[in-house]
Design a protein around this nucleic acid. Structure first.
Length: 460
DNA sequence: AAATGCGGGCCGG
DNA sequence: CCGGCCCGCATTT
């Protein structure tokens, strides 16, 4: 009921009783109503690198995602993760950033643009009304999470204090590191959740969850100029780790093809969602599931349900999701997919994942995504036990910008996906990780698995 | 130096 | 008209 509004509505809900707890990594077509006293909401913050976009509407602040900066060679860091830097928001700074090199292999850095919303960057809208701050997100990020803002700040601060002039690769943590880091913590509500199953390697989300692990990682990280330390920049791995420990159900939402949206997202995905659904994507986390009973679009990902033909999705799904999601707070998050693709995970997780994957179609990934192979190779090479992981065309495509110029990518992709969907009844193609287990760069996604999954639209 | 916001202006659908 | 986006300017961090 509460999610019947749209950011563009002349009048928004008045009820100011309940406010959602701040979501650092909103991902999906969702809406939240924050208190105008929420600092993070006031600042229109987001874990994603969002830049201001002019929408010629002074009432509504619009921001679009910049994606994530990665190593052009997709090298694997010493800890097994991948470099995932936060794109500089400032255009000028971003250009400079892209001229820098990977701290690990010295190859060029590459900006993976976000195309999670119909081929365009995911957009976030903010609107202040009375005592509430309305937030609406459109699109599903088709790229890994970048380093969170708070982490970036911490790192920069540390670097500054540490090496005003020195360039040694090994930098020590400043005395006040701990303090500053704490200072950057998000909402007070977020309690630190220590997941003992987590490896020391922590990710951005961990920032608020496992401080010890974080510190360790940080201390051992190698700082290079403005580049993020390897350990800090990878949010994904963490995602994987934390979930299993929580007994999360492994469902991988294959990425919803953005190309699909033009035809139906207006009716389903873009429609108001029922925020009452519990979200719990482990990723965001333990954080969300633990303290922010959240209302998150993540619940959508919960079941790998077959997707219905365009236009007929909702009612059923909604029921499925709303009901079960409430019961089972553990939902997989889109990010998991990333994690899957870009990172390593435990066999446990893999098993769980496999359990929910159904093979429906096969396809050759290589045919269109050399880059994907690249990622896969690195990522999975290390995990032989990693049996399967979901991959979607969109993701693969988005991961490798070089393959498709940004300018044309959106349209091209949309067409491709639309057609694809039409022919497959909107089936989401999911790549099986095991298909690229061997470490060679030539991987076949013969084991492609696709699962249809519907987009739940709780709002209706 | 960057992050943020704002808003003029251009462009394509 | 709408949405995406580039650009410059101003303010804040």
């Amino acid at each position: 009921m509460k999610l019947t509004w749209d950011i563009n509505d002349p009048k928004l809900p008045q009820e100011s009783r309940h406010f959602d707890s701040f979501q650092e990594w909103p991902d999906g077509y969702l809406r939240f109503i924050y208190s105008n006293e929420d600092k993070n909401a006031q600042r229109h913050l987001s874990g994603w690198a969002m830049r201001n976009t002019n929408n010629h509407n002074c009432q509504i602040l619009k921001k679009s995602c910049l994606g994530v900066v990665v190593c052009a060679r997709n090298c694997t860091l010493p800890d097994g993760t991948k470099l995932q830097l936060r794109p500089a928001i400032c255009d000028k700074a971003r250009q400079k950033q892209q001229k820098k090199y990977c701290p690990n292999c010295s190859s060029m850095l590459e900006l993976i643009p976000c195309r999670g919303h119909s081929g365009y960057p995911v957009t976030n809208f903010w609107r202040h009304e009375g005592k509430a701050i309305f937030f609406q997100a459109k699109g599903i990020h088709d790229h890994p999470r970048p380093e969170s803002k708070s982490e970036t700040e911490v790192r920069r601060t540390a670097l500054k204090k540490q090496t005003p002039s020195s360039h040694s690769s090994q930098k020590k943590r400043p005395p006040d590191f701990q303090a500053s880091r704490q200072h950057l913590h998000w909402p007070e509500k977020i309690s630190i959740i220590t997941d003992t199953s987590l490896p020391l390697l922590t990710q951005p989300h961990n920032l608020f969850q496992n401080t010890e692990a974080y510190n360790i990682a940080y201390d051992t990280a190698i700082f290079q100029g403005d580049v993020t330390s390897p350990l800090q920049s990878y949010p994904s791995p963490k995602i994987f780790v934390s979930k299993p420990s929580c007994g999360y159900e492994y469902t991988f939402p294959s990425y919803i093809n953005s190309g699909l949206y033009p035809t139906f997202h207006k009716n389903t995905m873009d429609s108001p969602m029922d925020t009452d659904h519990l979200n719990l994507n482990g990723l965001q986390h333990n954080l969300n599931s633990a303290n922010i009973h959240g209302k998150n679009f993540d619940s959508l990902w919960k079941h790998p349900v077959l997707k219905q033909p365009l236009g007929e999705t909702n009612s059923e799904e909604r029921n499925n999701h709303s009901g079960s999601s409430q019961v089972n707070p553990n939902h997989s998050h889109c990010s998991e997919e990333y994690a899957c693709r870009f990172n390593t995970h435990s066999s446990l997780e893999v098993q769980a994942l496999q359990a929910v994957i159904t093979t429906t179609t096969k396809m050759s990934f290589e045919a269109y995504k050399p880059p994907a192979v690249k990622y896969c190779e690195n990522v999975y090479a290390k995990d032989d036990d990693l049996l399967s992981c979901t991959l979607t065309e969109d993701i693969a495509e988005s991961v490798y910008p070089e393959i498709s110029p940004q300018e044309d990518w959106g349209a091209g992709k949309s067409n491709l996906t639309d057609e694809h969907f039409l022919h497959t009844n909107k089936v989401e193609h999911i790549a099986s990780v095991n298909t690229c287990q061997d470490n060679t760069t030539e991987k076949n996604y013969a084991g492609y698995e696709s699962q249809t999954f519907r987009f739940e639209n709780a709002g209706y």
